[in-house]
Each structure stands twice: as structure tokens, then as C-alpha cells.
């Protein structure tokens, strides 16, 4: 490595490579890195919309304010619970369905197609559809419940129920993601260890515990992490279905930041919150990246 210098041709190739990459790197910088850096800058300043170029440097004041804000803490804590709830429920349901589908031979493509439908839909559409379905008086869900003598349930208007409704809709929307990834994992497992385990005397449950789970470990962790990262950013569903309400019952952090910035016009503090959220997501992503690199 050390003693050998790159030849002139190698250096020329490298330069040519940079030239080729330059346009896309520039675009990436402008549309991704620039806003992030701009948010970082804003978070460290007192920022007023009517006087955009007279920012006052305030250090970490915005961060202190944000962390002291009871509402921010509420939505951060709510988001943590929401994310854990959603990811765990989706995992359990998704793994269950994946295990069942893994045994299916006939009509597999049809099941796949049906499962993928929700995943192909825009979250805004999902939110709109479900808002109609769940309408307290006119929605089909309450109508169906009434036919068996139940309800009516105020799905999105009750402070106790609303968050669970959002969780349910998110599961409906995203569980296929888990199913598809876990199913791909299951399908790629070697089948010989199962035969060996059958001869060794393992029943179906023991096979699952001692063979399937350990062999699926990496797939499970990667799936959970990816889903976790996406769930933290949940915004569209809230915006469409509840606007964080009733009260602050479904005020997830992404939506709360939006409100702080564009309703409360508290741009500096909102930027600080975004940076905090970004750090959390970056942390998860870095862990995911490290984990995926550690798998041989």
C-alpha cells in the first residue's frame, strides 16, 4: 500500500471521476445538506421572520427553551411510546403473518399483491380514507359496529382512543413492510437445519425458538431499526387525521415541530427541536449502519 504511488493514469481517472460526480454532488448539497445546515444555523440564533437578516446569535438558548418546554417533552415522550407501540405491534403481527405465508405455496403472488396495496398508498390518502371510515356518524366502521349492537366509538375525537386509532391506521398502512421483509428473510433461511432439528426431536415451537429466531436475528434487527427510524418521523397521518388532537393527545414530535414553526412562528426553537430529532434519528441510523456492516 504505502510505497506504491498512484500512476498518472490512476490520478487522471480519479480526477475524471470527481468531475463526473460533481453535478449530482452539487444538487445533493443544495437540496439536502443546505437546508440541514440552515436549520442548524437558525437553531443557534434568535430568528424573526419579518427581519430575516438581523439574526442574533443566542448560542444554545433555543435548545434550553425547547427542552424546558412541557409541550415538547410531552410530544417527545408520546412519540417514544407511539414508536415502540407501533413497531412492536407491527413486528408481532407481521412476523405472525410472515410465518403463515411462508408455508403457503398456492396463490402466493396474490397474497403478496394484496399485502402490498396499503404500502403503495400515499400516507395522505391513507389518512383521508381512514378519516372517512372512522367518522363518528357517517363512517362505515361505526355502522358495522352498530349492526352488532356496539358503538358508536368516537375514534378520533376521544383523547383516550385517538392515539390508538392512529396506531391502528399506521399498522394497517405499514405492517406489510414488516411482512415483506420478514418473509424474504424466512424464505432465505436454509431448510436443512430444520430437517436436522426434526431428526433431533424438536417440535414446531422448539424449531421456532431454537432455529428460526436465532437464524432470523439479523433480519429482525434490521427490519425493526428501519421501521423505528421511519416511525419516529410520522407526520402525514397526524396532519390529516387529528392535527395532534384532540388537545395534544396525538401531538407527535414531527407535527409539534411543524406547529411551533409555522403556527407559533417560533422558528428558532422549532429548528432546535428539529436538530434534536435529527440527532436521535441519526443515532438510530448510525447504529443500523454499524450493525449492517458488522454482519458478514
Amino acid at each position: 500500500m504505502s510505497g506504491i504511488k498512484a500512476s498518472a493514469a490512476d490520478r487522471r481517472d480519479a480526477r475524471f471521476g470527481y468531475v463526473l460526480a460533481a453535478p449530482s454532488l452539487t444538487v445533493l448539497f443544495l437540496i439536502i445538506l443546505f437546508p440541514v445546515l440552515s436549520a442548524l444555523y437558525t437553531s443557534l440564533h434568535e430568528y424573526t421572520l419579518i427581519a430575516p437578516n438581523f439574526d442574533i446569535f443566542t448560542g444554545f438558548d433555543n435548545f434550553r427553551l425547547a427542552l424546558a418546554d412541557a409541550e415538547f417533552r410531552h410530544s417527545a415522550w408520546l412519540t417514544i411510546r407511539f414508536v415502540i407501540g407501533v413497531v412492536l405491534l407491527e413486528f408481532v403481527i407481521g412476523f405472525g403473518i410472515a410465518l403463515m405465508l411462508n408455508k403457503v405455496e398456492r396463490f402466493k403472488p396474490i397474497y403478496y399483491a394484496i399485502l402490498l396495496c396499503p404500502l403503495l398508498m400515499n400516507p395522505v390518502i391513507v389518512g383521508l380514507i381512514w378519516r372517512m371510515f372512522l367518522h363518528p356518524n357517517l363512517g362505515i366502521v361505526n355502522y358495522l359496529l352498530s349492526t352488532v349492537g356496539l358503538g358508536p366509538v368516537n375514534w378520533l375525537g376521544d383523547t383516550k382512543i385517538a392515539i390508538w386509532t392512529v396506531i391502528m391506521v399506521d399498522i394497517w398502512h405499514q405492517v406489510s413492510f414488516m411482512i415483506v421483509l420478514l418473509l424474504a428473510g424466512l424464505a432465505s433461511l436454509p431448510k436443512e437445519p430444520y430437517e436436522a432439528a426434526r431428526v433431533d426431536g424438536a417440535n414446531a415451537f422448539q424449531c421456532f425458538i431454537h432455529i428460526t429466531l436465532p437464524m432470523m436475528r439479523t433480519v429482525i434487527i434490521v427490519t425493526l431499526l428501519i421501521r423505528l427510524i421511519f416511525a419516529v418521523k410520522t407526520y402525514d397521518l397526524i396532519y390529516i387525521m387529528t392535527r395532534g388532537g384532540p388537545g395534544v393527545a396525538t401531538d407527535l414530535v414531527s407535527y409539534f415541530i411543524y406547529r411551533t414553526a409555522f403556527v407559533g412562528l417560533n422558528i428558532g426553537e422549532a429548528s432546535a427541536m428539529s436538530i434534536i430529532l435529527l440527532t436521535a434519528i441519526l443515532g438510530l441510523t448510525a447504529y443500523l449502519y454499524r450493525y449492517m456492516r458488522s454482519i458478514r
Partner: peptide, 21 residues
């Protein structure tokens, strides 16, 4: 009879060891 109860052992072509154990 279930393979486990036949009291036989099988050695597979690709060994089929439990990779995580």
C-alpha cells in the same frame, strides 16, 4: 412414525449444522 421417534440419525450432504450454535 415421527423422525425423532425412529431413533435414527441423518448426516446431510451440506452438513446442516445449526449455524448459530
Amino acid at each position: 412414525v415421527d423422525p425423532a421417534d425412529r431413533d435414527i440419525a441423518i448426516v446431510f450432504q451440506n452438513y446442516a449444522l445449526y449455524p448459530h450454535m
